[in-house]
């Protein structure tokens, strides 16, 4: 399977006087899950729609495997996309929804049943979509995207409306698809939702790129925090003030950001401060995400 890279170059879109996307460039590689992150209204969906030929860019280009989506002979078989949970006729059954798009991606009704089974909708296949829950609609959207067994997938907020169990399932499923060499682009407005799924992150805010890297590089910019519990918090506060550290109460203890645990422990020992807990807390990616997306204000 030759999976195409997805690429946007200097992409821009104006709706009237509103600049929805501005000079956006990034690349999504095959074989990895890429998270496309940004707050609601930051231009994610508009960007995805430009990538898929639904919205015409005002500037720049959006490319699938080096060409515009619409230029491919059977684009629906190259990129499977699920853009929004509302794009279903409520009076149509799940199976009929898939069957309606099957001719254009060159598959039969057996394949429709197959993807319904893959996303766990077999029992609901012959029920009308109007009676589906939001999570079931998300799964039907995913089944539609998978219909042609495409080498690239573009999923817009696929975790919305899923229960925790569904999110864990989706995580494993997307990892599996990327491991097969496919290109997987997943948008979300909550980093935590995709944090354990993605290899790479592209973060946008107000239509502009604010960060693009691997997830581990993003985590490295977060800086560690040290968590301390002591029966004498007022002495800890004195110590922090002495050293010029910030010290924020959290739960039963305090957090000292940007100072390694060893350094806090040594200082406490030297000061004769009794500690009940001393631990390194992982980078809070959500904080980084909020900082990144807020900084563009």
């Amino acid at each position: 399977m030759e999976a195409p890279a997805l690429e946007v170059v200097g992409l821009g879109k104006s709706f009237g006087s509103v600049r929805a996307v501005d000079d956006l460039s990034f690349r999504v590689e095959p074989g990895r899950v890429t998270g496309f992150l940004g707050p609601n209204g930051s231009g994610k969906t508009t960007t995805l729609r430009m990538l898929l030929g639904l919205v015409r860019p005002s500037d720049g280009r959006a490319l699938v495997g080096g060409h515009a989506y619409a230029e491919h002979p059977v684009p629906g078989a190259l990129v499977g996309a699920a853009l929004e949970a509302t794009g279903f006729h409520p009076g149509r059954t799940g199976a009929a929804h898939l069957a309606a798009y099957a001719p254009q991606v060159g598959v039969g009704r057996e394949r429709c049943r197959e993807v319904l089974e893959q996303v766990g909708l077999t029992a609901a296949a012959d029920r009308k979509v109007g009676g589906y829950s939001l999570g079931m609609r998300q799964h039907l959207g995913l089944a539609t995207a998978l219909l042609a067994d495409p080498p690239a997938l573009v999923l817009d907020e696929p975790a919305n409306g899923l229960d925790p169990e569904g999110i864990v399932w989706l995580r494993g499923f997307l990892r599996h698809l990327a491991a097969q060499g496919r290109t997987v682009l997943v948008s979300s407005h909550v980093l935590g939702e995709v944090q354990h799924t993605v290899d790479d992150v592209v973060v946008i805010a107000r239509g502009s790129l604010v960060h693009a890297s691997s997830l581990s590089e993003l985590a490295a910019t977060a800086g560690a925090r040290t968590y301390v519990e002591t029966p004498t918090p007022e002495r800890l506060a004195e110590l922090c003030a002495e050293r010029g550290w910030t010290c924020a109460p959290t739960g039963a203890g305090h957090e000292v950001p940007d100072v390694p645990a060893a350094e806090v422990g040594a200082a406490a020992y030297a000061a004769g401060l009794e500690l009940h807990q001393l631990a390194t807390r992982g980078a809070d990616l959500e904080d980084v995400f909020l900082r990144l997306t807020g900084a563009a204000a």
């Binding site: 898929l52 639904l54 996309a81 853009l83 509302t86 794009g87 279903f88 006729h89 539609t144």
Partner: peptide, 10 residues
Amino acid sequence: HKTLTQTLLA
């Protein structure tokens, strides 16, 4: 019903 999106994707 916003199925035009899916139609134009296909």
